[in-house]
Design a protein around this nucleic acid. Structure first.
Lengths: 233, 233
DNA sequence: CGCTTTAACATCGTATAGGATATAGGATTG
DNA sequence: CAATCCTATATCCTATACGATGTTAAAGCG
């Protein structure tokens, strides 16, 4: 009788009548640790002992070790022999620069491709993701930023999806997990600027203009970089 | 008393006198499975049962599961609950296209950066990696291709290293593992063309010309793609 | 005060057992 | 004869106990 005190993902039935098979314990444990990393409940660099997770989740060593191995493969945790696991350290300034250099190489190009493939359905999805409607929704700053971070992630991810390069999409999405932790650590404030930039990208999509989309995306990423840069001071 | 019948990586002493601590069993098992995947001893898509590895390596379930988890995190194996692990399936045509699209976005840019940062020491490393000396070395076609594949990988990786973006380097290196398996499956023949293209890149590096380097890299990748494309017929 | 020794502790790995599920092959039934 | 059901085996999944080994930190000594 084991129980992972977590979002209950055991045996859900989708609308189509398809039975979504219940996840394995490894899966649940993985999700649980992942969520704790993303929520900073486990701080970057801090140690993660198997035993503490055993007690916390009420499961045995086996599935926890396997889940930690998977997290290690994804680069979210590190392992040192005979010392144990620890959360990956905070992103460095150097890594930050590298990430933005890569984003600038990939995302404008993909934005241009997405603009070509744009149609009304996709545009609506992006409008929704950008949260144009709920722009002035937040009162609490922290909650507001949390919402923005999620929206921003979905917005970019959807554009990558529409650009029809799954590999690039996965690559950036993977990097985003690290980046998300970095942003949360400094709970950067949402600036109206970022939302304006999103709308500029949307405008380019609206007119299905690939060059304008690439340009708007480039500017957005560059400004995003510059907004976050002070975090390293 | 357990023994992984594998390249003996237990306790090596580097030149500097530093003691490289003996790897954990998980590490050894990971390396062993990885090597088998890269050597096609485990075919893409084929099942990988824990028990068979237990018998083969003479170790218990625990480190094997942890190592398999790590491989899963890296995308080299897939897991289905209550069915088990299997090697990731062969790369699809679609994925192949996506990979080359991404390479074309990243590598020419990095080649240009590398050209700017080029000096004699780096150039010599690249000349060595390109195997300019041993160009006509191989007699056996298969062995010859195996050598070329390794050289090509190192050549590109070194260029990424010199372009000083570790993230891009890691990203491409990671993709290369999948790509390597694909290439081996079709044991493509080495063409003199590829070696000529490498030398064209080297020439651009020799004159520290970033534009020429980017151009040569772009051409090389495009040709590489076209050479491998017939594999999908 | 600094170094060495030692003891407590944590991690790593082994071995084993039992429950759950998938897959294959045979038996039953229409 | 074909389709369905059922049983048996292999495999996976998890839990648990134990031993081996290395780390860590405190204690002792020069």
């Amino acid at each position: 009788m084991q129980s992972v005190n977590l979002p209950d993902t055991t045996e859900t039935i989708a609308g189509g009548g398809r039975i979504q098979r219940s996840n394995s314990l490894v899966e649940d444990v993985y999700e649980a640790i992942f969520a704790q990393l993303m929520a900073l409940k486990i701080a970057p660099g801090s140690r993660i002992t198997v035993d503490s997770l055993v007690k916390e989740f009420n499961v045995s060593h086996t599935p926890i070790r396997e889940a930690l191995g998977r997290l290690e493969g994804e680069g979210l945790v590190l392992k040192t022999h005979l010392i144990g696991y620890r959360a990956s350290p905070q992103i460095t300034r150097r890594r930050f620069d590298e990430l933005y250099e890569m984003r600038l190489l990939l995302e404008p190009h993909c934005a241009a491709k997405a603009a070509v493939a744009m149609d009304e359905a996709k545009l609506n999805i992006l409008l929704d993701a950008a949260g144009v409607m709920s722009r002035r929704g937040g009162k609490d700053d922290r909650l507001r930023y949390s919402n923005f971070a999620r929206q921003d992630a979905i917005f970019h991810d959807k554009i990558m999806e529409f650009s029809e390069n799954q590999l690039i999409r996965e690559t950036l999405s993977h990097q985003h997990t690290h980046f998300h932790i970095f942003r949360l650590m400094f709970h950067a404030r949402v600036t109206e600027e970022a939302l304006d930039e999103h709308e500029a990208i949307l405008a380019a999509f609206g007119s299905a203009d690939p060059d304008a989309a690439a340009r708007a995306m480039r500017i957005h990423i560059e400004h995003s970089r510059d907004r976050l840069l002070p975090a390293f001071d």
